[in-house]
Design a protein around this nucleic acid. Sequence first.
DNA 1: TCCATATTTCATGTATAATGGAAATGATTG
DNA 2: CAATCATTTCCATTATACATGAAATATGGA
Lengths: 110, 110
Amino acid sequence: MEKSSVLTVLSALAHDTRLDVFRLLVRAGPEGMTAGSLAATLDIRSNTLSNNLVILSAAGLVRSAREGRAIRYFARMEQMRDLLGFLMEDCCGGQPELCQPVLDQITCPC
Amino acid sequence: MEKSSVLTVLSALAHDTRLDVFRLLVRAGPEGMTAGSLAATLDIRSNTLSNNLVILSAAGLVRSAREGRAIRYFARMEQMRDLLGFLMEDCCGGQPELCQPVLDQITCPC
DNA sequence: TCCATATTTCATGTATAATGGAAATGATTG
DNA sequence: CAATCATTTCCATTATACATGAAATATGGA
């Protein structure tokens, strides 16, 4: 993962509402949630949520699929996994072999 | 880990220079680096670095120890581990037992 | 004590991001 | 095709974060 992508992902998550949205989608799992139910659950205006969903999408943290009139959002766990990989890499004074086996385990069945 | 702490940590890392500083300290391992060598390595002014070190310290991502005239900084891997734990928790539609064994592996010998 | 070195603190101008009202788009229903 | 619902886009205001110059603090050495 490139550093610029990492910064985009971290900036996207470093926001009160967006962190809530992302975690809600993580909890929702493969079912995801529509923009409307996200807004209702978190009690935020639709346009504010929309702006934040754009930012999460641009960061690759969520994906969306139209479903009739609504649009359903899903967390992209791969992106999270790649972020964790970047943050942990080259750990421990240039001896990645100490951490690599651990990083290899960071996968999620989602 | 509390959500407010998570936001503080993410905000601290979501910054070009601070991400460089943190990763440099991660690579440096237990030896750490002085503020001066960090500034020289990254080619940034001392007061700019200092401001950023304050932010990283407040987020619990680094710790420091005076060493003569210099001050030596170290990455706090525990904080990173806790962050990862928070981001992954309650994964997969409220079935944490799917991810918990994975999270339990996220430890670093640093 | 006086000076040099290392780092931090303060104050400030500027750039960037966040919110929310209003309007626009896209999709379904009658 | 009009009406309605879900969501997004546009825009203006406000708030926040950033880098920097200058000054202050702390340590070690002459």
